[in-house]
């Protein structure tokens, strides 16, 4: 049978893949946003696994709110991305160095 630790290890592996994705694709903001979604999926799997094995629905409700916040975050993030492309003509992270002084 599948134990809780299997789910936890699986979600930590996917979490680290998302983390490595941010390191690898650090110049492409869209890829960084998608890696953040990957990390959120891993964390949500963690929540649901604990909710199932602990017989407590609070974890699933927390995942529901995480999904809501993540959808709002993606909408605003992509809006900012569109604005950045309109103003600078590129979505390269190295172009956004206005605050560097």
């Amino acid at each position: 049978m599948i134990a809780l630790s299997d789910y936890l290890i699986l979600s930590s592996i996917v979490f680290c893949i998302g983390l490595a994705g941010i390191f690898i694709n650090r110049t492409n903001i869209i890829m960084i946003l998608m890696c953040v979604e990957l990390i959120l999926a891993a964390v949500n799997t963690n929540f649901i696994a604990f909710s199932f094995y602990g017989s407590d629905l609070a974890g699933q409700i927390f995942v529901f709110f995480i999904l809501t916040v993540a959808a709002a975050e993606v909408a605003i993030g992509l809006a900012i991305l569109t604005l950045m492309y309109r103003n600078r003509g590129s979505i390269d992270i190295d172009v956004t160095n206005t605050l560097k002084g």
Partner: peptide, 25 residues
């Protein structure tokens, strides 16, 4: 809608690959 190819071409893929793999492992 956006021109994403220009930024992906300039992405330094291999530069941060060892660091990413190390941290994840």
């Amino acid at each position: 809608m956006l021109d994403t190819e220009a930024s992906t071409l300039r992405a330094q893929f291999t530069r941060y690959l060892p660091l990413g793999i190390f941290v994840s492992l």
